[in-house]
């Protein structure tokens, strides 16, 4: 018993240790992202600018160009990672991500419609794709409803609805093939040319989503025991499922409407975090959010500098580096 007890404590402190590592990794990635680029800026100057030194020679680069972009990366990372973590729990399916509730296909069709059909209104890209994302999630939830929306029905309804909407996207591609250029970066997801305006749009969603998610973490743990078990423990299973789907739709929709259809983060980041800290949502949610920040900031920085002056969209870097790393984790630790 002594040994078992020790092992348990070790596991607990291990989880805390990993989470703190994620925190440092996130801070490092933010600094790295701010300091790296055509002009390298040392950490001292960055810190002094962040604390209000507007006299620095790098002020303009850091404050007006790199900082908003990095902050968008930070919040998009948080949102997509949390959204994926929540959905994997709600669906009790490790392969779930924001695609499943139609956020990507909805934002995709609406966003592409604006970019290709009504390019004159491209300033409305963000709100319109947000509406598309939210409407699609709602539609999928309603389609899946039959005296309750079971995870399996949601997944299937999601696959069908996404196929339908993607057909629409492809149709638009065919009709407006001459204008496709501008739409590509939206479809892969990228962080170039983000300004304070976008930071202001996404921050409230991130903060509200993060707070609600972490406050509901224990309920998520109970939901993970399965529908009938959580029901018999007195949880309003159906109500909380809708609640969690709504939170993750809000988080993911606000992210993809700003940076485009950035896949992968929502699937891989929570998964990797889960492999390292386990399934307890009280730890998994903050750990995923921090890892999301690190992954997105690092990928974006690499995309900016690797083939400079050509900038690779962050989505491509994420897939290129993230997928092999994920496979490595998968092979190393087999308890999924």
């Amino acid at each position: 018993m002594m040994n078992d007890n020790k092992g348990f404590r070790k596991r607990k402190s291990w989880k805390a240790f990993v989470t703190i590592c994620f925190l440092f990794l996130a801070i490092f990635s933010v600094m790295f992202s701010l300091g790296t680029g055509a002009v390298s800026v040392d950490i001292k100057s960055i810190l002094s600018i962040l604390f209000g030194d507007s006299a620095s020679e790098y002020y303009d680069i850091i404050w007006n160009i790199r900082l908003p972009r990095t902050l968008v990366a930070v919040f998009v990372g948080i949102n997509l990672a949390l959204s994926g973590a929540i959905l994997q729990g709600v669906m009790r399916n490790p392969m779930a991500d924001p695609h499943i509730i139609g956020v990507s296909s909805g934002a995709g069709l609406f966003g592409i419609t604006i970019l290709l059909v009504f390019p004159a209104y491209s300033h409305l890209l963000v709100p319109v794709s947000f509406i598309g994302a939210m409407l699609t999630s709602l539609l999928i939830y309603l389609l899946a409803w039959d005296r309750g929306a079971s995870p399996m029905r949601i997944v299937l309804a999601g696959v069908a609805a996404s196929a339908f909407l993607n057909a629409g996207v492809n149709a638009l591609y065919t009709f407006y093939s001459d204008r496709i250029q501008g739409a590509v970066s939206f479809m892969v997801g990228n962080l170039s040319a983000k300004s304070w305006e976008q930071v202001e749009i996404i921050v409230p969603y991130s903060l509200i989503g993060l707070t609600l998610a972490i406050l509901s973490a224990q309920r998520m743990n109970v939901l993970l025991l399965g529908d009938s078990k959580s029901k018999s423990l007195g949880l309003n299973t159906e109500g909380y499922r809708l609640w969690f789907i709504a939170i993750s739709a809000l988080l993911a929709a606000s992210a993809v409407s700003i940076v485009g259809l950035l896949g992968f983060v929502g699937l891989i980041v929570p998964h990797a975090a889960r492999l390292l800290v386990g399934n307890d949502y009280k730890i998994l949610l903050p750990a995923s959010a921090l890892l999301g920040v690190a992954v997105l900031c690092l990928s974006d920085t690499i995309g900016r500098v690797a083939f400079a002056p050509i900038e690779l969209p962050v989505g491509i870097i994420m897939g290129g580096i993230g997928a092999p790393f994920f496979l490595y984790l998968l092979r190393k630790k087999r308890t999924l």
């Binding site: 009790r92 743990n221 993970l224 025991l225 399965g226 009938s228 078990k229 018999s232 386990g278 399934n279 307890d280 308890t335 999924l336």
Partner: peptide, 10 residues
């Protein structure tokens, strides 16, 4: 229940 599923490492 007849079948109980649980969180893997709980």
């Amino acid at each position: 229940m007849q079948e109980n599923e649980s969180n893997p490492e709980i």
